Amino acid sequence: MTAIELAVPRRMARPPGRALTTLRRGLFGSWLNGLVTLATVALLAVIVPPLLRWLVIDATWSGSAADCRAGDGACWAFIAAKIRFILLAFYPAELQWRPVLACVLMLGLLAATALPRFWRRELAIAWPAVIAACWLLMAGLPGLIAPVSSNQWGGLPVTLIIWAVCFASALPLAVLLALARRSNMAGLRLLSVAYIELMRGIPMVAILYFAMLILPMALPAGQSMDKILRAIIMIALFWAAYIAEVVRGGLQAVPEGQREAAATLGLGYWRIMQLVVLPQALRVVIPGLVNQAIGFLLATSLLAVIGIFDLLNAAKASAADPSWLGFYDEAYLVVAAIYFAFGYGGSRYSLWLERRLHRERRD
């Protein structure tokens, strides 16, 4: 037998001058492009030098608040003195290793979830286990770990825990809502539509006030619930409505023939959803899910309205210290950099995951 080898054409390397030609055409390919380019350069020439001077050249890198007020630049000495408070808020100094460890566990879980090689049943078990471990680390356990009131929680651990727990809880609920909205059962479909439209029509601030003021009244007499737990429950229910619409778009993108072909093989409804429809639908809506996740991360800053010291609220409180009063710009810049790192990292991850899943599907 004769073996026939198929030569796969390799991607041709771009000529060295091709990139410069493309850049030149993009910046000065027409009179309008050239005008916009020149206007942008002029604007940057006006903005960048003073900003760079304030951020780096004239900045105060060490010293006291008096040294900062004597200078004309940013006070990075304030960040050095208050970075622990910005990240961990009022958590007792001698126990701050616990929220740090909780952050490491949560970030490790998120990193494992982001890699397709770990998409197994064990990962679904790891989520509640890690969340419980983080909660025990933060809250303590009487007799074993010194208890710490949730009123002393704050900063990055609270932001990460609330965001991750709410999104992880909202996603399966959103899938059920999306399936119910496309159901042939009129009553179930009506309930799903009513829930989604009601939640999407209420501001998140109102949901948070409901969690703080109305939800405790629904508890039996003598019963109480931690305010962070109340916020997590209501935020998860709120976010589920938004994610459900994203998932519904993915379900509509799956051809009906896929479901019909699976039904002819004798598969039931839930097996068809599990093995055929949902894997394709969720692959389609990866950009939408990542976009929602980034938006929800930024929305955690609204927790400040109910007295929960998230990352942004902790930064604001750090600049209210009488010893360092007024250095809000530096505090907000640090928090903005942290949010940007998560947001930009999430968007790049979304692109990487799309390319990987597309390549696997093509192969």
Rank of each mutant, 00 (worst) to 15 (best):
I47H: 11
A139C: 11
F296T: 05
R18M: 15
L351Q: 12
E245I: 02
R359S: 02
P255R: 00
G222I: 06
L325A: 11
P287D: 02
A293C: 11
A39C: 08
W31H: 14
L267V: 03
R24V: 04
Q223I: 15
A211Q: 04
L303N: 02
A42C: 07
A59C: 07
P203Y: 13
R10S: 13
A178P: 09
A42S: 08
E256D: 12
L27M: 10
T264D: 00
N33S: 15
A206I: 13
W135D: 10
I161D: 02
L267C: 01
Q252L: 13
I162A: 08
V46E: 07
L105A: 11
R24A: 04
R230E: 00
V165F: 06
C134P: 00
L105G: 07
I286Q: 07
D363H: 01
G307L: 13
A111H: 11
V100F: 02
I286S: 05
Y242P: 03
E5M: 13
P220H: 08
L303I: 00
A7Y: 05
S149V: 13
G140H: 10
E122I: 07
Y344A: 08
A336F: 11
Q96H: 00
M234I: 11
L289Y: 01
M212S: 06
A65M: 01
L44I: 14
G346D: 07
E94L: 10
A315L: 03
L38Y: 07
E330N: 00
P128T: 12
I86Q: 04
W61R: 10
V285P: 06
G201L: 04
L32F: 15
I79S: 02
F78I: 01
S30F: 14
W31K: 12
L312H: 12
L176W: 13
L107P: 02
Y195Q: 09
A7R: 11
R69Y: 05
A218T: 14
I243P: 00
S149P: 14
V285N: 06
G155L: 01
